[in-house]
């Protein structure tokens, strides 16, 4: 299977499909629960955790752990750095499509 290597103008961290899904969903909503995001993207807990951690380490998203009615609840939101990176990514993607 041929692997598509993203052009340099595209942020490789965002370009992976699950991470792109996380960033897109959080760009549309100020905050989403981990479970909501998992169901929306149709991925496993482990898969979402791995990708969310990478985005968190890059400072793109915030991960907040708390309790709602004594049950643990993890919420994710886009950090300002992540919003800027996502907007840049979408602009680059649109430019690339226009140029081809």
């Amino acid at each position: 299977m041929a692997v598509f290597i993203p052009p340099e103008s595209l942020d490789a961290l965002i370009h992976e499909r699950v991470r792109l899904g996380i960033m897109s969903a959080l760009a549309a909503e100020p905050e989403l629960a981990f479970t909501q995001l998992r169901d929306m993207l149709k991925v496993t807990d482990g898969n979402l955790s791995v990708h969310a951690r990478l985005l968190f380490q890059a400072g793109y998203i915030r991960i907040t752990k708390g309790f709602v009615e004594r049950k643990p609840r993890t919420t994710l939101s886009l950090a300002p750095k992540g919003r800027a990176a996502f907007e840049r990514y979408v602009r680059s993607l649109e430019d690339l499509v226009r140029k081809r």
């Binding site: 041929a2 549309a28 909503e29 929306m40 499509v97």
Partner: peptide, 27 residues
């Protein structure tokens, strides 16, 4: 080249779909 273009278009569509689905939860 065509495959790359298809992938880029598919990414744009994916972004739009996920953003719409995310917002739909609120409706």
């Amino acid at each position: 080249m065509q495959r790359e273009e298809a992938r880029l278009l598919s990414d744009l569509k994916y972004i739009r779909d996920v953003m719409e689905l995310s917002a739909t939860h609120k409706l």
